[in-house]
Design a binder for these strands. Sequence first.
DNA 1: CGGTTGACCAAGT
DNA 2: GACTTGGCCAACC
Length: 104
Amino acid sequence: MMKSFDERCYILLGKVPKGRVTTYKELAKALGTRAYRAVGGAMKRNPYAPRVACHRVVKSDGSLGGFAYGAREKIKRLRDEGVKVRTGKIQDFERVFFSFGMTS
DNA sequence: CGGTTGACCAAGT
DNA sequence: GACTTGGCCAACC
């Protein structure tokens, strides 16, 4: 049974621990593709709104990117998880960044 | 089934 | 540092 690309994004995203963030690019790469945009699209569609921690996904530059519920809400939630945000940018981005490639 | 769209990315201006 | 351009790939109409 072949899950949609979208569903895989949600599953993978579910592996991101609280207080950490990942990027659309890293997600796509972990999925074995380069469809960064499709990943973002999955978040936007986000049928599992509260189930999926879409607010933990940011752009590669460390900027927040977009958010279906509004950027303001995204910042609020990230801060609540311990991620500091400044003018729409993640502070200590590399510190809170979660990579899927860190095996063993 | 073909074309458009997009919560992106990287490089150039 | 902000804006523009080309490119990538899957979902949607």
